[in-house]
């Protein structure tokens, strides 16, 4: 392939990617700030923030927003606390029954979570975990943990044992090595895990509805009734809010990571 043709191909492919993956989201954003944009206009004619004002004027949305962020944040933290040792053990040690444990950990990906939630419903009622945030957090671990363990395990797989050993022979104990060598080298996997888990938790409607029983109000609980409402700018604004949350989470997480690296870097 000649260089010129390759450059041209690259541009085409990149534009194709943008067109497929990014352009629809931009359209949604335009919808949320437009005024009276309806069929058959192919582009907005007037702009207005009314949709956004309605979304932020609704007090239910504010409290649900807080609930959603709280639940997703705790779910992300719990995922790291549980998945990191599990992934480390699966990646580094060979033990009897490892294959079985790995398959068991895959099950929540393979069995529809709806089935598990319906099955657990009565048990959770008995345990008193329904209709409260704690139960919702617990049930959100089901669809997230398998992914977290998978992503972190492949991160550990890629990280050679020698990095830890290098830290150890330089005199750092295993805990220090973990925080000063492993965590920085694992940032891509850590970032992927955090965002993936956050988005999955944010996207749960049916699990929250069953276990939360309508008492625990998260954003999706309000979104579904909104969807049928006729006001397109409002529903578009609400949708953009959903798309913004993970992006804001990613930025926040990235800042935290950078600050952390800065702290451990000092010579």
């Amino acid at each position: 392939m000649t260089r010129k043709r390759k450059l041209w191909m690259r541009l085409t492919m990149l534009s194709l990617f943008m067109l497929i993956f990014v352009a629809p989201v931009i359209l949604m954003f335009l919808k949320s700030v437009s005024f009276g944009w309806s069929w058959p206009d192919w582009r907005p004619t007037q702009f207005d923030l009314r949709g956004w004002r309605v979304v932020f004027g609704d007090p239910r949305i504010f409290s649900s927003l807080w609930n959603t962020i709280l639940i997703a944040g705790v779910v992300v933290m719990l995922n790291f606390i549980i998945a990191t040792p599990a992934a480390y053990a699966l990646s580094r040690f060979h033990f009897r029954g490892k294959a079985i444990i790995e398959s068991l950990l895959m099950l929540p990906i393979l069995i529809p979570v709806l089935a598990i939630a319906m099955g657990l419903h009565l048990t959770m009622i008995r345990l008193g975990l329904t209709d409260q945030v704690l139960g919702v957090i617990f049930i959100h671990l089901l669809p997230t943990l398998p992914y977290a363990i998978r992503v972190l395990k492949s991160g550990f797989d890629r990280l050679k044992n020698e990095w830890e050993e290098q830290g150890a022979v330089l005199g750092a104990n295993s805990q220090t090595v973990f925080w000063t060598v492993m965590v920085p080298l694992m940032t891509p996997s850590i970032r992927s895990t955090a965002v993936l888990v956050f988005v999955i938790s944010l996207s749960q409607y049916v699990l929250t509805a069953i276990i939360g029983g309508g008492t625990v109000s998260t954003l999706p609980m309000i979104y579904y009734p909104f969807f049928t409402s006729a006001d397109e700018a409002v529903i578009a604004s609400f949708s953009v809010l959903f798309a913004l949350l993970p992006i804001m989470f990613l930025i926040l997480f990235e800042i935290t990571l950078r600050v952390y690296l800065r702290v451990i870097k000092r010579p």
Binding site: L14, F17, M18, F21, V22, P24, V25, L27, M28, K31, V195, L196, V199, L202, S203, Y205, P220, Y223, Y224, F227, I235, A236, S239, F242, A243, P246, I247, L250
Partner: peptide
């Protein structure tokens, strides 16, 4: 990272985008 983008969007928002289009 461009391909990552749809992963940031919850499923039901993707459904709404599909509806919009």
């Amino acid at each position: 990272f461009i391909a990552w983008f749809p992963m940031l969007i919850p499923h039901f928002v993707a459904a709404y985008i599909c509806f919009l289009l």
